[in-house]
Each structure stands twice: as C-alpha cells, then as structure tokens.
Amino acid sequence: MKTSNPATGGGCPLTAPPLYETQALRQATGTVLRPGGLSLLNHALDKVRWQAGARILDVGCGTGASVAWLRRHHGLQATGIDPSRKLVEEARKAHPGLPVLRGRAESLPFGDVSLDGLLCECVLSLVPDASQALKEFYRVLRPGGLMILSDIYRRAEPASDAPPGQSCLSGAVGKTTLLQRLQDVGWRVRLWEDHSLLLAELAGRLIFQHGSLAAFWRQFLPDGAAREMMTAVKIMRPGYCLLIAEKVPCRDGEKLRLSDAISR
C-alpha cells in the first residue's frame, strides 16, 4: 500500500512525511510496501514462467525488493523504476549494483518492444493517469509479453464516496473499470484472481500495531478526515487483485506466445 505518486514523484498529499516513508507502514509490510509481500509475486511467477535472462521491468519498484528477488532467485534481467528519490536511494543502498532508475509510469525511458515482461505491484491505483501508464507498459513490452499486475480495487462500484486525499485507496477502481482500461489499450487479460485476504491481513497487522485502523489513519489525517476515510473505505470495500495480461500482437500477423501455465 504505497502512497508515493509514480507519476509526479511527489509524496501523498495526505501525509507528511509520506506514508511509505513511515515506520507505521514498514512495520506492517516490510520493505516490499504492499499486501502479500513476495509470496504473491512468487505465485504469479509460477504462472508466467519467465525464462532466465528475460528482460523484466518493475514499475514502482520502491525499495527494490522485487527487483533483487527476480535477479537473485529467478535469474531474470530485472530493472526497477520509481519516481521517489528516497526509495530509489534506499534501493541502491540496500542492494548495491541493483539497476533502479527514477522515472514515471506514464513515460518510461525504454524503447518500444524492448522488454519481455513487466511488473506493477500495488502501484497503478496511485498513478494519476492509469490509462496512459497502461499504454506505456504496452509500448515497451514485446508482442506476447506478459504483465503481472496486482493492486487494490473497489469491490463495491460505482466509485462514489471515494476516500479523501490521494492514495492507493482513493485511486482504486472496480474490476469492471480496470478490465475495461486494459482492454481499451489492447491488453488481453489471461488471469484474474482475488487476493483480498492479503489486504485484510495487512489491515489486521495495522490494527494490532496501532490499536485500530482509525488510530492508524489519525497519524496521517486530521481527525475528521480520518473518520471520512474509515466511512469511505467501508463503502468501497477494498480488495486486492492479481492479474496477468498479455500484450496481444499487433494486427500484422505476429503469432501469439501464450504460456500454458496461465489459466483463465
């Protein structure tokens, strides 16, 4: 549950300092800063079966935990990108030599069809122009390349009573909207799984650590806004999803390369 802004590099305006820089969140998530830690990533890797040496980009890599994991344990040629100077510096310090860059999700400094795979974990809901980001992801991936995307989503639509401020919760959309955005760009969704229990577990850890979710939010929001947040969250019923999408080849006759491992 990161609150950095992958598009602008600025911190969440709700927070000073940004939520992702606080021990409050780190204690609950570790350095991965998202529900599920590396376990959900490993689950997704089993599905995509990227070959060793494949060129993978982690968009919104944060402290570089996933990038380091992909390189060390899967032999992937992984690179990370994040707009946060602080997180990129932390990644480089924690993992010397790790290729992590500063950059925006909507404007990736990579050439067309230059990557084999892409990761975007608990980040898209923070991007102001998610559709543009999805277009960029599509542009840099080779035809048939796969994207692993996990994010908070609204289990109750339509998107009314959004939580206050700008955070991954306020930027979350429903399943229908998310799938439509992917389809509009040309992505073909190969897998959708609900992992809302991971978000519930994270909420549970925050409760045990801070006394209640209200107490957690009051650290970052004025009392009234914290109450508003709690009400809005109850209405939107946030969940957590994992999806795998494929860059469908252009209409020039290129053949699909689908992984047998991916189930619908």
């Binding site: 549970g204 409760i207 045990f208 006394g211 209640s212």
Partner: peptide
C-alpha cells in the same frame, strides 16, 4: 473486545 474484534470483522468481510 477491541483489536481482535476489529480484525475479526475485517477478515469476516
């Protein structure tokens, strides 16, 4: 009655 009840509520959706 406090934290555990709140966590239970979340897990029970």
């Amino acid at each position: 009655t406090g934290k555990m009840a709140e966590v239970e509520g979340i897990l029970e959706d």
